[in-house]
Amino acid sequence: MSGGTVADFLRSPRGMLALFACTFAGAVLLAVAAAFNRPFFEKFVAEKYGVVTAQEDSLMRTTDPASFVRKVQLLTPGKQTRLYEIWMQRPGKYPEQMPAWILSGNRDTLFQRIRVTLLAGSAVQRQMAALFLSRTRLPEAKVMLLDERKRAYRRDEQDVVSYLDELLRTQ
C-alpha cells in the first residue's frame, strides 16, 4: 500500500474508526498487563520511617513507666507520633506495655496516625499497627481493630483476617 493510500484511508471515516479501534486495543492490552501485575504496584505501598537515633532508642528503653508517660505528655503531637514510628521499626525491643504508654499522649493524633498506617502501610506494617493497637487494650483500639477486620474481609485478605481474629481473641 503506498503512502498516499494510507493517508487517504486514515482520512476516511473507516480509517478513523480503525485508528480508534487499534488505540483502544492497545489500551486494553496495557490495562490487562497492569491488572495482572498487582504485586508490582503493591510493592510501592509502604510507609517510610526515619532512622532511629541512639537518643530516641535510649528513651524508648525506659524502665520507669511513670517518668516515660510524663515525658510523652510534654512532647508535641509530632514527636509523639515519632515514638509510634520508632516502635513500628523495633516492636520486639521495647516493653510490651509501650504502646499504652505512648498513647498516654494526644490520643486523637496517634489514632489518626495509626489509621494512616492501616490504610497506606505494607502488609507487614499493617499487622504491626494492629499489634500496637491490641497492646494498648483501649476500647477505641478494639473498635479500630474490628473496623480493620471488616476491611480486610472485604478485600479478601484471609491471612490478615485470621491475624486480626487472633489479636481480638486476646483482647
Binding site: F20, F24, A27, V28, L30, A31, V32, A34, A35, F36, R38, R154, R155, D156, E157
Partner: peptide
C-alpha cells in the same frame, strides 16, 4: 460512547484487579 470507551477501558480492567 466513543469517549466512554476511552474513559472506561483502564478503570474497568484495573479495577477488576483491586483487592476485594
Amino acid at each position: 460512547l466513543l469517549f466512554s470507551v476511552a474513559l472506561v477501558i483502564f478503570p474497568a480492567i484495573i479495577g477488576a484487579a483491586l483487592r476485594g
